[in-house]
């Protein structure tokens, strides 16, 4: 039973680390800041939560502290992404040429 938990935990860690890797790759590949924020925020949030769950399965006595870290990241990661996106938009951050529409800019000019 303990061995099975340990194996599941290690697998979750690998899956989480894979999502973190995707986040890094997204940062490199995406064409502009807003898409990079999207790639960076979502993948790292899930990746970290999965990895911490994996660690919790392998060391159950750390469960509460890991839960606290996971909750904190679930709350603050999107907030920092939004604050950064808003300030970048206000300062006129360049957008990718693929961008099809920007209602915020239209409304601000109106």
């Amino acid at each position: 039973m303990a061995a099975l938990l340990e194996l599941t935990g290690a697998m979750l860690l690998v899956v989480g680390a894979f999502f973190l890797l995707l986040g890094g790759l997204g940062l490199v590949r995406m064409p502009d800041l807003f898409n990079r924020i999207q790639a960076g925020t979502k993948t790292t949030t899930l990746g970290t939560v999965l990895s911490l769950l994996g660690v919790a399965l392998m060391e159950p006595q750390w469960g509460w502290k890991l839960l606290l870290i996971a909750l904190f990241i679930l709350f603050t990661n999107p907030i920092s992404a939004q604050v950064l996106a808003r300030s970048a938009h206000r300062t006129g951050e360049a957008k990718s040429c693929k961008t099809v529409v920007d209602r915020l800019e239209e409304d601000q000019q109106a």
């Binding site: 995707l22 790759l25 064409p31 898409n35 790639a39 993948t43 949030t45 938009h89 693929k98 920007d102």
Partner: peptide, 25 residues
């Protein structure tokens, strides 16, 4: 959250990077 990540994984891993970004209201 899981759906978002799988969708993003497909976008990031496909060579053509199929995005159509924009800001909607």
């Amino acid at each position: 959250l899981v759906r978002a990540n799988l969708k993003l994984a497909v976008i990031i891993l496909s060579p053509s990077l199929p995005i159509r970004p924009g800001i909607v209201k």
